[in-house]
């Protein structure tokens, strides 16, 4: 099937290829929205890619006070990793260093999964013997004394093995500014999709990579086929109208969440149109043999 054009934007006849991951989620609350976001942003810092960060994490959705267990503003944060052990380690390190430390914070399970990960049941040792265990309505909490009162933390949270990491699409435009406008619009739309995160800075990756490289030890390196400055030098995927490519990488709680996020993002880019945003949309894959999940772009069109 040839490439199609929707609203003046070329949609490549290709697909995104994604992988099975382990994921968990927590709900962080704080006295106000600012500090709920602050704790969530801090704990999801340096969590763009499993290649170098150990996990991929971001805020899934912000929660109004009516939707949190303690009636305060909150954020649902999702964390993805390749294995359960690494996910457990990242969860405890990040909550311990970034949420426990954040003023007025509390931390609750954000996922009911097939297995459990330790949360408060490990962090409670910070209490040095003064921690208090409370079971309220079938849920187990730990209360750890801290300098502004108590850190309340649910004992465990859920783990899902059905998560998907690496759903993606490329936003390709005539200029960097237009590419950024289109990518930002896509990220905003994906932000409304529950169960999906975009872990890169502001949800956008500008250094989409290929596997390996010419230097020993490089796990990933420049994707020269999509680098506009190399357009004439290498076998490029870019036509003369493309001067900037930005990638949106999506991790989802389920296969459906990734698909919904891709659809939402692509729909927004298409609606924005080629004059203000992207002229072409593509996606990254490894030939379809490595990833368990395939998202064909033509199935993701609005």
């Amino acid at each position: 099937m040839p490439n199609v054009s929707v609203n003046g934007i070329t949609i490549d006849d290709t697909f995104a290829e994604a992988f099975g991951m382990r994921a968990t989620a927590i709900v962080i609350t704080a006295p106000n929205r600012k500090w709920a976001r602050q704790a969530a942003i801090t704990m999801t810092g340096f969590a763009t890619s499993v290649i170098g960060c150990g996990c991929e994490a971001a805020i899934d959705v912000e929660l109004p006070p009516s939707a949190t267990p303690d009636g305060r503003p909150g954020c649902r944060v999702m964390i993805f990793a390749m294995g359960t052990d690494e996910l457990q380690k990242q969860l405890l390190n990040r909550v311990g260093q970034c949420v426990l430390t954040s003023p007025g914070s509390a931390c609750f399970a954000g996922l009911e999964g097939s297995a459990e990960l330790k949360l408060g049941s490990a962090l409670r040792y910070f209490g040095d013997g003064w921690q208090i265990s409370k079971k309220i309505g079938g849920r187990h909490f730990w209360r750890v004394p801290v300098m502004d009162g108590e850190f309340l933390c649910e004992a465990t949270t859920g783990l899902t093995k059905a998560a998907v990491g690496g759903g993606n699409f490329f936003v390709m435009a005539e200029s960097s500014a237009k590419a950024l406008v289109a990518a930002e619009a896509a990220v905003a739309a994906i932000g409304l999709v529950p169960g999906a995160i975009v872990p890169f800075p502001g949800g956008i990756a500008r250094s989409g990579s290929k596997i390996g490289g010419k230097y020993k030890g490089m796990i990933a390196s420049a994707n020269e086929a999509y680098a506009p400055t190399l357009r004439g030098v290498v076998r490029s995927e870019l036509g003369s109208d493309i001067n900037a490519v930005l990638e949106i990488v999506i991790d989802g709680e389920t296969n459906d969440a990734v698909a919904a996020a891709m659809k939402a993002g692509i729909k927004t880019v298409i609606e924005l149109g080629p004059k203000r945003g992207a002229v072409r949309i593509s996606a990254g894959n490894y030939g379809g043999k490595l990833g368990k999940f395939i998202y064909s772009l033509k199935d993701m069109l609005p």
Partner: peptide, 17 residues
Amino acid sequence: APESVFAAVIDRHLIAE
């Protein structure tokens, strides 16, 4: 009398039940 998330959670639980 510091602010207590536990108090908020148990208050909400008692009302919900």
